[in-house]
Computed example of a mutant assay.
Amino acid sequence: MSKELKEVQGIIFKRQKFHEADLLAKIITKNSGIITMIARGALKPKSKLGASLLNFSYGTYVIVSSGQGLSNLRTYKNVKQFDGIFNDLTKNAYASFILDLVDHAFVEYQDLGKYYELTSLALTKINDGEDAEMITQTIQMQLLAAYGVEPELRHCVICGKETGDFDYSIVKGGIICSNHLYTDTTRLHLQPKETAVLRTIGLIPFSRLGTIKINQDTKKATRRAIDRIYQETIDLNLKTKKFLDELNLFT
């Protein structure tokens, strides 16, 4: 496959040393999916490439790519950084977890569609100090579709009822109304307001990301519910999630 010189706009989220003075960096891009770039000589003292590849840097990167495998980084333009995330351990942990979730939902070079804009907006809001946990929970609920596990949140999966009190059924793949709670003894046994939060954050438009305000008890309950949904339907084992647990943010 022939290689071409192209510009990609995106966000750096992983990097590691490669050979003596090279760097490998992963970037989530607006139009070309997730790409692993090699920056040759980036660790040499006189190289300017290394500074553009710090985690949570974003901008335009000029690469040579064949659309598969490693791409070669040539140069960069207008690179900035989410300083608020880079310099804050808690924000860093949430942002790293979100990017890890997106990374595992797609193969390299696969079009991310709406999820690039959703991820970029989430990082911007976390960087600016908005509620990182509710933003993360929202991303988790909306990413389920990318994993092929899109729950039915608009109406009862059994009768189609759209209003009233609901619980969440992992087995049935969505919400069940109060008339059909008996059909699943393994349902999450959430309070109606907790299920309402899951519905809201799972369906909320991007423009309202981060606007949901709930109390700590409800937030903990929805966090546990989302954890269980992921454990029983996707079963990821992410180091970034474990780190969040260690920070007592997801416990």
Rank of each mutant, 00 (worst) to 15 (best):
M37G: 00
G10A: 05
I98P: 06
L99C: 14
H189K: 14
I212V: 15
L24S: 01
K6L: 15
D88H: 08
Q81W: 05
L123Y: 04
T90M: 10
I139S: 06
D184Y: 07
S52D: 07
L121Q: 11
T251S: 06
K14V: 01
F56K: 09
N127F: 02
Y182D: 10
P192G: 11
E7Q: 12
N78I: 01
T218H: 03
C177F: 03
T75S: 15
Q231M: 08
A105C: 01
L209Q: 04
L143K: 08
G41R: 05
T124Y: 09
F206A: 13
A42E: 11
Y94M: 11
K114V: 13
K26Q: 08
P151Q: 06
Y230V: 15
K241I: 12
Y147L: 04
F97D: 09
L112I: 11
H19Q: 07
Q137R: 15
N78H: 08
R40L: 02
Q216S: 09
I139V: 14
T211H: 02
I226P: 01
L198T: 04
K48W: 01
L54K: 12
G33D: 10
S66D: 12
T138E: 04
L23T: 10
I176C: 10
E133R: 14
F86D: 05
E7C: 05
F82N: 00
E246L: 11
G164N: 13
E130W: 06
R187H: 12
P45N: 03
T183S: 01
S207R: 10
Y230S: 02
I201Y: 01
D103G: 04
T240A: 05
R74Q: 11
T60H: 08
E246I: 05
R187E: 07
V149F: 07
A146S: 13
N87Y: 15
P192Q: 10
A145V: 06
T163Q: 12
T36R: 01
I135M: 06
N237L: 07
D227Q: 13
D100N: 13
Y109D: 06
S47D: 03
L53N: 10
L70R: 08
V149L: 01
L49K: 15
S57I: 03
S169V: 07
C159R: 09
I27C: 02
H104T: 04
H180M: 11
L236T: 00
S207M: 06
L181H: 00
D235C: 01
Q81A: 12
G164L: 10
A25T: 02
L249I: 08
I214F: 03
I139W: 07
K3W: 14
R74I: 14
F56S: 11
L188F: 14
N92E: 06
C177R: 08
S207G: 03
R199F: 00
I27K: 00
F13V: 04
V157P: 07
T183I: 11
D131G: 01
E4M: 15
S32L: 02
T138L: 08
